[in-house]
Design a protein around this nucleic acid. Structure first.
Lengths: 150, 150
DNA sequence: ACCTTATTGTTGACAGGTCAACTAATTTCC
DNA sequence: GGAAATTAGTTGACCTGTCAACAATAAGGT
């Protein structure tokens, strides 16, 4: 028999997927920003963009926005900032004159290589007591949520 | 044999737990805000706080901040706003004169009851093609990450 | 008792994110 | 070919989140 109405739905609240993710995300974000600030002069968004560009070798602003789910306005401003610091280079696209191709500069790559080591270490720390199989399940659930959320 | 250096680490990027979570979260947040806006006059933060208070029956601002990982300043302002709309009531605490006890008002509870139905439906939509067992694993991984992240 | 430290909640200042309007280029479809 | 719709990227306005300082209270240690 259930308790009447004293503490009716704490379970319900915590079972909200979005609530749980948001909570973890807030914690992780704060920690990641701090880690980042300690090692380079990049915001979390800038770092993610750098990583996104590095991952693809060459890309465009719109592609970054889609890939990372960062607002395209924000991407635009971050590109300007990163370009100003010579961390990435912009060039004209072959077919489409609207878009500019984005690639890391030598400095940009150097910063990435240096920082990615730290971020990988952090990730290992975060996931060290999680079974690889569980992590795979975790990712697959994230993908399903992503697909469902549009 | 691996490709030389053309697209070296897209796998690596997507394997970053924080990156993946952030991406999903951005998508989910936008969707949740839209859903919320369509059904009531609450921001996502206000909704989470309402849910947090409802879950505990009676609580304090600091407890909400810890529970939801929302900034205490933000909590303070949201409390003021919700109090102004008579969605929650504040009272003096018995033992500690600094804190105020927060409870939902009748209207607050009514709004919660009405909106929680919609949010549950949304959650069912999001999780419908995820096996319950996988969802449990997902939550347990989230918990481990939360614990590791501090 | 006292001094130090920690905690609660509020506030101001600011960085960051979000949204919508806009131009320019491109595609679609008749 | 040409009007309508779509997409890339920029920008301005605004809202939200974050951080640090602060006063008031509480707790701990000597």
């Amino acid at each position: 028999m259930k308790k009447p109405t004293a503490s009716p739905s704490f379970q319900d609240l915590s079972s909200f997927v979005t609530f749980r993710i948001a909570r973890v995300q807030n914690t992780l974000n704060a920690q990641a920003s701090a880690t980042l600030a300690a090692h380079c002069d990049l915001t979390l968004t800038e770092w993610r963009m750098l990583a996104s560009i590095e991952a693809r070798g060459q890309t465009t602003a719109a592609e970054i926005a889609r890939h990372t789910q960062i607002d395209k306005g924000q991407v635009s401003r971050a590109v300007k900032s990163l370009k100003g610091r010579a961390l990435l280079k912009a060039g004209a696209a072959a077919t489409d004159q609207r878009q500019q191709t984005l690639t890391l500069s030598a400095q940009g790559r150097a910063v990435f290589e240096r920082v990615v080591v730290v971020m990988r270490k952090r990730q290992e720390m975060l996931t060290q007591d999680i079974a690889p199989e569980d992590l795979r399940t975790f990712f697959s659930v994230l993908d399903k949520l992503q697909a469902r959320a549009l």
